[in-house]
Write a protein that binds this DNA or RNA. Structure first.
Lengths: 111, 111
DNA sequence: CTCAATACTTACAAAAAGTTTAGTATATAA
DNA sequence: TTATATACTAAACTTTTTGTAAGTATTGAG
């Protein structure tokens, strides 16, 4: 992350640099709502996201301790994603962001 | 914005595509906290942001109806930025994001 | 006549982010 | 033997975003 001491004063900058990427908030929201979700399911919900993008962002979220990845060595393979305890602390923000979007899609559509 | 009907189902995607950019949330937060702020002051607070970046993001926020720009034709010129009524509806999200960041900077620093 | 102050804009360059296409591994089913 | 399913990864490429450096406009002060 490009977070340096200069921004020690700015917690919100910390938050957004930690969760940056066209899809990260959506991914977190989906995980929050589903409790747990398999890779292909997530990909289907988020299409047209590219596999590379999805798996990269998941990996980053995992590295940041927000998402948990559980792999089952079956055939065909199964991988389940869910929020960590830390990830769950984002829930109120996710809810508000979703609500805000919902209201504004409406008013944008009123034209 | 690249928001299309495909995402009609996903309000949170709408929100993040509307407020995208490395600095937008921080800018909004500064405006929220200061009520109003002049260009150079904002630039100083956000350094090392580039002028180009700052003025572009301000312009986009203005176009999206979240930020208000008031220009006084004095010499030297004076321009003041503030949140619109619509922009103010983001306040709860800004607060939560800032809180979340504050908590996590701490726990990241505990190592 | 030149400088200073504020709030930018412009052209160009670099970096970051995302996409496209193709391919991997494994084992069961047809 | 070939196809199928899942969960990816790799390389090359395009797009988007951000940064750098310089320049613009105004007018009052020295």
């Amino acid at each position: 992350m490009d977070f340096n001491s200069k921004y020690g004063k700015c917690p919100i900058y910390y938050t957004i640099s930690k969760i940056q990427g066209k899809w990260k908030w959506v991914i977190l929201y989906k995980l929050y709502k589903s409790k747990m979700i398999r890779y292909n399911r997530l990909w289907n919900d988020l299409k047209p996201i590219a596999h590379r993008t999805l798996s990269k962002q998941l990996k980053e979220l995992e590295a940041d301790g927000l998402v948990h990845r559980e792999q089952y060595n079956e055939v065909p393979p199964r991988v389940e994603y869910s929020l960590t305890e830390d990830g769950k602390t984002l829930a109120p923000i996710l809810e508000l962001m979703s609500d805000w979007g919902a209201k504004h899609i409406d008013s944008d559509t009123e034209n």
